[in-house]
């Protein structure tokens, strides 16, 4: 997400558009929408992206109200337009016969898409998802029901409590969903849970430094305020919506499970476990063989096997700190 935002900035996206993008991308995605439908209910499935949209648009409009990108002069784009899309080089005399057939090309692209899904997308989520799963289990076993009823049962205090938990920590949108389901079953109000689902992914301690670089100090403060205020408003509103529709949240949670046959559930769970084990193996091997301990020589080329394939680009960096630093500078 953050490298993408950095590259948008480089290509001349204005600050408001960047803030909007920085809110909606972590708060919602196709993967988190799918898992919300599975573990929560259709109302939450709609509310999460909707609240993300409103938060993002608000943050962006506030930013562009204060810094009019048009009044600042239409700066020529830092990159010539032609370079924005990879065009086939003119004048290459490749005979048409050597071009891959459309069928094999689309097959290769399909392979790329699947590889991206299983390696990059799941690779980004997997650690958080395991943590989310464990936390959901712990909540189910240990969180006293009267506590969550009392503190998280609804009202402004519940929203603020969830904000206090959600804002400093990072948990990706997909991984926060099992935690949300566990909290709901323990009697937390849907609104309070929604606040957690919005504030958890949108803000955290480590992304702050990147936000400051992209938006500036005041811009970051405004971003945080907008996320906090809009999330709480949506939370309060959602708690009014359920009684209005005559729905008891706890009764409808996870109803989507009945849509999937058992063999498919066991099959896909097995597949995910194997995929996760592969990621773990890959991570351990990578750690042991390639990374010199404790050094961060930014931009120092590593061996080809040391290059990280991330979002279809190759990064050669000697450590994670260095990788993040490069992305930030880019």
């Amino acid at each position: 997400m953050l490298p993408a935002a950095a590259s948008f900035k480089r290509q001349g996206a204005n600050r408001g558009a960047l803030s909007a993008f920085l809110v909606t991308t972590p708060e919602s995605g196709v993967d988190s929408i799918a898992i919300t439908y599975a573990l929560l209910d259709p109302i939450m499935t709609v509310m999460r992206p909707l609240a993300a949209l409103v938060t993002g648009v608000t943050a962006g409009l506030v930013e562009n109200r204060l810094h009019d990108p048009d009044a600042a002069g239409r700066q020529p784009s830092p990159l010539p337009l032609a370079s924005a899309a990879p065009l086939p080089a003119a004048g290459t005399n490749l005979p048409a016969a050597t071009e891959p057939s459309p069928a094999s090309r689309s097959l290769r692209r399909l392979g790329e898409g699947i590889r991206y899904a299983l390696v990059d997308v799941w690779g980004d989520i997997v650690v958080w998802f395991c943590a989310g799963l464990l936390l959901a289990g712990l909540i189910t076993a240990y969180l006293p029901e009267d506590f969550s009823n009392l503190v998280l049962g609804g009202g402004l205090v519940s929203m603020l409590a969830m904000l206090a938990v959600g804002m400093p920590i990072y948990i990706c949108a997909t991984a926060s969903t099992p935690i949300a389901a566990a909290l709901l079953l323990k009697g937390a109000s849907p609104g309070a849970v929604l606040v957690f689902l919005l504030a958890g992914p949108a803000t955290n301690m480590t992304s702050l430094s990147v936000l400051v670089q992209v938006l500036g100090k005041m811009g970051t403060l405004r971003y945080l305020l907008v996320v906090a205020i809009v999330s709480v408003l949506f939370g309060l509103g959602l708690d009014k919506l359920y009684p209005l529709l005559g729905i008891e949240p706890r009764a409808v949670i996870g109803e989507a499970r009945e849509l999937v046959p058992v063999w498919l559930k066991i099959g896909s769970a097995t597949f995910l476990i194997i995929l996760t084990a592969w990621h773990l193996y890959r991570f351990v091997r990578h750690r042991r063989s390639e990374r010199p301990a404790g050094t961060a020589v930014c931009g120092f080329p590593q061996s080809a096997e040391g290059a990280d394939r991330h979002r279809a680009t190759h990064h050669r960096s000697s450590s994670e700190t260095c990788h993040d630093e490069c992305c930030r500078q880019a």
């Binding site: 993967d31 599975a38 997909t174 099992p178 989507a256 999937v260 559930k265 995910l272």
Partner: peptide, 10 residues
Amino acid sequence: ILLDSSPYII
């Protein structure tokens, strides 16, 4: 949770 969510995650 894993059983319920994994088809949708994939």
